[in-house]
Simulated scan of single mutants.
Amino acid sequence: MSTADPATAIDLAPVVDQPWRLGERGRRWFDVTLVALLVLPTPLYLLAGIPWGVPLSLLQVVPLWWRRAHPDAVFAAVAAASALQVVVHDNPLHSQLAFPIAVYSVARYSTARAGLVALVVGAVAAVVATVDWITGFDGVVNVRSFTPYFLTVSAFVVTAWALGTQGRTRAAYVATLVERGERIRQDAEQRVALAAADERARIAREMHDVVAHGLTVVVVQADGARYAAAHDPEVATETLARIAVTGREALTDMRQLLGLLRADEETGRNPLPGLADVPDLLDEAARHGHVDADLRGLDHPVATAVGLTAYRVVQEALTNVRKHAGPSARTSVQVAVDDDHDAVTVRVVDDGRGASAPDGGGHGLTGMRERVDVHGGTLETGPRPGGGYTVEAVIPL
């Protein structure tokens, strides 16, 4: 038998350690450091007699500061600066490392289509850069000289694109898992709330019958007292006393459940069950499995709402036994009104497999707790050490 709350089941799930990631501030500092490290060697081009190296390096490196927010625009700027270098300067510059970084940024932070475009542009750039560098070194462009340069440059581009694509795919997968977990949590909370609302509506319907019954008795007795007053004042006095008792009981029931009333709905005409109906409930349960009963004090008068709550607790507990404990489970049911008539005690114990059975989306515990809490009582549920499940409720009178 299982009465686990879905929301609680989620809370008790094992916590998986999350991988370490940079926060927003850490990412900003990372980009600042990256740009600074690539800009730092730029003044050396003046000492080497390559004045064009300074503006070209800045044009290629500085856009990387915005590579996360605007990856496509940054790649376009870096690619344009690299193309300008082919026209102005024939030798490689250290700032050309910005190109594979820009390719990575497009593959990581933009779309898959933009990443493929960057890969194709990178392959073309590898061909152009290889020819430009070999020519700048006064070499002859042939297969033997072209191949090692091209493979080296293209390896940077392909590696950057592959790493960026992997990062984007993983980020999308993690986001999907997070969204799914949030949907599961919201669905569990909604199901619990709906179960509580259904139970309150059910109590409201039953409360309607409780109060209607009490008022009907009051009206009938008041009519009798009015007719008896003229002939037998003593009978009228006794009738008025019974009216007062009935009214107080109806008011007590109404005050206990008033906070749960949510809607006025029509109810059936069947009388509300109580402690006197528990034996019939156990006889029905015995047809589905072995049930041992220990019933004491059921003939003592109790408030209608208290008897109804005790009946519903037994009914829900037996339902869970039938659903989850297994066909060969034995059930022990104890219902007793204390000798001093201050509480009704309900205890349902089974020796089945309910403690390990899946919940199946039930909300029996929610409904039982709603009912018992209204009367200021206590409800304890849980698996037994030797197997099986226990439900125990104490409902004050």
Rank of each mutant, 00 (worst) to 15 (best):
T3F: 15
L12C: 11
W20A: 11
G26T: 03
L44P: 07
W52H: 00
L58M: 06
L59A: 15
V61R: 05
V62Q: 06
W66D: 07
A69E: 14
D72M: 08
D72C: 03
S95W: 02
I101G: 02
S105I: 02
S105L: 05
V106F: 04
T111E: 04
T111C: 00
A112R: 15
A114C: 06
L116Q: 12
A123N: 01
V127L: 07
W133H: 06
I134V: 03
I134D: 00
G136L: 05
F137D: 10
F137I: 06
D138S: 14
D138F: 13
V140D: 09
F146P: 08
Y149R: 13
T152V: 08
A155Y: 04
F156Y: 15
V157F: 14
G164M: 06
Q166L: 14
R170T: 07
A172Y: 10
V174R: 12
G181D: 12
Q186A: 15
D187A: 13
E189Q: 07
L194E: 11
A196V: 11
D198C: 00
D198M: 04
M207I: 01
H208F: 14
H208G: 13
D209H: 03
V211T: 06
A212I: 04
G214T: 04
V217A: 13
V219A: 15
D223S: 11
A225N: 01
A229W: 09
H231F: 12
P233H: 00
V235P: 03
A236W: 03
V245M: 01
R248H: 10
L251Y: 14
D253N: 13
R255P: 00
D264I: 09
E266W: 09
T267M: 13
T267G: 14
R269S: 15
A276C: 05
D277W: 04
D277Y: 03
R287L: 14
A293P: 04
T304V: 12
V314E: 12
T319G: 15
T319I: 11
R330V: 05
S332G: 14
V335C: 02
H341A: 15
A343S: 09
A343P: 00
T345D: 15
D351G: 06
D351I: 07
A355G: 02
S356C: 05
A357S: 14
P358S: 12
H363F: 09
M368V: 06
E370N: 03
D373V: 02
V374F: 01
G377C: 06
T381P: 04
G386T: 05
V391Y: 04
I395E: 04
